[in-house]
Nucleic acid binder design. Structure first.
Lengths: 125, 125
DNA sequence: ATGATGTATCGACATCTGTCAATTCACATG
DNA sequence: CATGTGAATTGACAGATGTCGATACATCAT
């Protein structure tokens, strides 16, 4: 089968190296693109809910079947959002028997958050 | 003239109260929408560059004319992006004589970053 | 094998979004 | 008042995105 552009899963820690904090200097177009790509993965209400639902799950993991009802969307749509988050390096996917279990990548959210924290303009308060 | 939905500028500090960290509990649809709205404003490469350009400016402020050349886009497009960032509560706009000066809202980026930091999964390293 | 169940992919569609040219608005100055 | 300059708005358009139904794939049970 032709490879369907299997994204190699982004390493979000790279973003800290290049761009944290955003206000630390002028960011070139290529880095801005990478930062925006990471943020785009998060900038969707359903995906925000999915992240919080997975984190709240006992064991910190959830299968697709655990998530469709809470978010109130179809199974294909939920699978799509989970794929977006996994491709962005925010979630991992692990197939166990019939179920696909998703969990947060440790430190991934913090790496994105580090771009926005350590903000010089926040030292004034 | 009918009010053109003049957004009252979001207060990003509210997000800390409701949703930081994202992984602290299940987030309801309304809050997820607000979080996503804030992140959407940032999730665009040109806007990332505009933020870093403004922050790098001496005095921490810039007019539209300072920004069009560095980002290489038309004046209307730059104005559009600045409006998106201002409506999201990330930038302020101040008209002085003929020029409109934009600057970062102190702590705004940090407030968004706080949603993603303090992430329990990042304590393991 | 056959069937059942969980998940991913595909195709289609409506909506959203980034961009620009053209225009309008705001302000200052001759 | 007329003119020039900086910025915002409008209208249009191409491309991206969220959603679903239908379908294909994967794994288990019978």
């Amino acid at each position: 089968m032709i490879a369907t552009a299997q994204l190699p899963v982004l390493d979000l820690t790279d973003l800290r190296a290049c761009c944290a904090p955003l206000t630390g200097g002028v960011i070139d177009s290529a880095d801005a693109e990478r930062v925006a790509t990471a943020l785009k993965a998060l900038a969707e209400p359903t995906r925000i809910r999915l992240i919080s639902l997975i984190a709240a799950q006992p064991g910190g993991e959830a299968c697709v079947c655990d998530l469709t009802d809470p978010v109130g969307l179809s199974q294909p749509t939920v699978s799509h959002h989970l794929k977006v988050l996994a491709d962005a390096g925010i979630l991992t996917r692990e197939q166990r028997t019939k179920w696909a279990y998703y969990r947060l990548v440790p430190g991934a959210l913090a790496a994105i958050g580090a771009l926005l924290s350590n903000d010089p303009t926040s030292r004034s308060d």
